[in-house]
Structures are given as C-alpha cells and as structure tokens.
C-alpha cells in the first residue's frame, strides 16, 4: 500500500447519483487485485474528516477506475471533483477475491451476483477471470454468469461492461422496469436450476447485506463455495482502529478493512 496524490483523469455521472472516476495511479494499477479497495480523501479540509473506502472498479494500464454512489457528504464532494485535480488516495487495501482453481471435473460455472453499487468490484473480478494470463488454460471450461439486481432500470450498473468482457448477463429490477421483476437472489435460484453442472458452480457476491445473507444461505444449502464482499463504516482502512468489525461464527469479530472486505460466506455469522 502507498499514500499517493493521484491525478483525476475523468469523473463523470453514469446514472442518477452514480459516478465513475478514473485516476492516474500506476502503483495501485500494478498491485491491485479484484476485490481490494482504496481510501480516498474527499474533502480538502476537515469535514468530512475520514477517508471513504471505495472498491477498485477496473484496473487499467497506469490507471484505476472507481465507481461510486453519491450517498453522503463525502461522496457528494467527490462527485464534484474535476478532471486534472489531485486526489489523495491510500491503496490498494484489504484482501480481495480468491479466484477459483482449475475445474476438477467438467465445466465450472462462475456466478457473480451484484446488488446495486455492488456491481463495481465485480467488474474487476470478471476482468481478472477473463483476461489474467494464468487462467487462459481453463477459460473454456469456466463460463462466467453475471446477475445484476437493482431497484429500477436506471440503477442497473455495468451491464455493458460485463457483456464486453464476455459474461452472460441477467438482470432483475424490483419494479420490473427491466429484466425479471424480482430480487437478484431469485435470479440466482433460477440460474442454478437451469444451468448444467450446477454442483460445480462458484459464487461471488457484492451488494446489500440482506442480499448477501440470502446468497450465503443458497450457497450453503447447495454446498457451493461462496465469497462475499462486505461494506462497513471505516476509519483507518488498514486494521489499526478496529472500527469496521463483522461478526464471524464463534462470536469473534474480524475487520472488514484488513481481514476482508472479501470473506468466505460460511465464516460469517449472518
């Protein structure tokens, strides 16, 4: 990890309240793994005081992209930053997704499930699944499905990105304005019922806690490996302040920033 002053290359609105920022950060681009995050200083002064943790959305050559939702003072200030300005960033932080090993027997469906802004880090994951050199050997046997759930049509994020990578994308909305009118978790049940080799599937999820909880339950019931990426209010981002706990089985806390943000769904006390 490093603390860097990064130049903002682009900061644009992609949907209502959703923004995409591209920053020049060769070090982070070189080191970042899918699922890791950066801590961004949103204000120049002391309000808000703390940095904001944002998942790495895409890793490019010398640059990284952040996709975020303007939900509070910090992210609203961030959305107003302009091209050419400097951004104080610490990263890459945390423990990212563990990519699946080679398929044991038969094809291995890889399922990414995103709720709302949860799509952001899953794009990085889909890209590493598709493009990392190590995986070329078993790419033919590993097909990636992406399930995106959102409140309404305009909140569906990254659909075209996932398609460009070559994933099969299915969409659901709560109001039925696009795709099936249901929650993303229902898409997961549907998919597991129709795909071939469902017993070989591996699940990766990021989204609201309610969604993750249901995904974890489905995975547990079907005995499928499942990794979830969590969100929590954070201060330091490196494991010093113990401010971002998640309760694990056995009445222990782990820190989202350092032990996560990606966890094995089985270990969490949902």
């Amino acid at each position: 990890m490093r603390q860097l002053n990064c130049k903002i290359i682009e900061n644009k609105k992609v949907a209502q309240r959703f923004y995409k920022m591209r920053i020049e950060a060769p070090y982070i681009a070189r080191k970042a793994q899918a699922g890791q995050f950066v801590e961004v200083k949103c204000s120049c002064g002391t309000d808000p005081l703390l940095r904001r943790p944002l998942g790495v959305h895409r890793v490019l050559k010398n640059e990284i992209e952040l996709l975020y939702k303007a939900v509070g003072r910090g992210t609203e200030l961030l959305s107003k930053k302009e091209k050419g300005q400097a951004l104080d960033v610490i990263g890459p932080l945390g423990d990212g997704f563990t990519l699946p090993g080679p398929p044991v027997s038969g094809p291995m469906p890889i399922i990414l499930i995103a709720g709302g802004i949860g799509a952001a880090p899953l794009v990085a994951l889909a890209e590493s699944l598709a493009f990392s050199a190590k995986r070329i050997a078993y790419r033919k046997k590993q097909k990636t499905y992406v399930l995106i759930g959102a409140k309404t049509k305009s909140h569906i994020l990254c659909e075209s990105e996932f398609k460009k990578i070559g994933c099969e994308v299915k969409v659901s909305t709560e109001d039925g304005s696009k795709g099936k009118k249901c929650l993303a978790t229902e898409l997961l049940e549907d998919l597991l019922n129709i795909i071939r080799y469902p017993l070989n599937a591996a699940i990766y999820a990021c989204g609201p806690v309610g969604m993750l909880k249901v995904v974890a339950k489905i995975a547990e019931w079907r005995k499928l490996p499942c990794q979830v990426s969590l969100e929590e209010r954070m201060a330091c981002g490196v494991g010093v302040c113990l401010g971002c706990p998640v309760k694990m089985k056995g009445n222990k806390y782990k820190m989202v920033c350092k032990d996560g943000p990606v966890f094995d769904a089985k270990e969490i006390a949902w």
Binding site: G45, T46, D47, P48, L49, L50, R73, G74, E232, R233, M234, A235, C241, L242, G243, C244, P245, V246, K247, N251, K252, Y253
Partner: peptide, 15 residues
C-alpha cells in the same frame, strides 16, 4: 470482543 458495529462514524470535523 468489543462493541457491535457500526463502531465509527464521521461528524463535522471529527469522528
């Protein structure tokens, strides 16, 4: 074991 989350929150010029 410590307190249940959330454990930290921003406040104007503080936390």
């Amino acid at each position: 074991v410590g307190n249940p989350p959330p454990r930290v929150v921003d406040t104007p010029s503080g936390m």
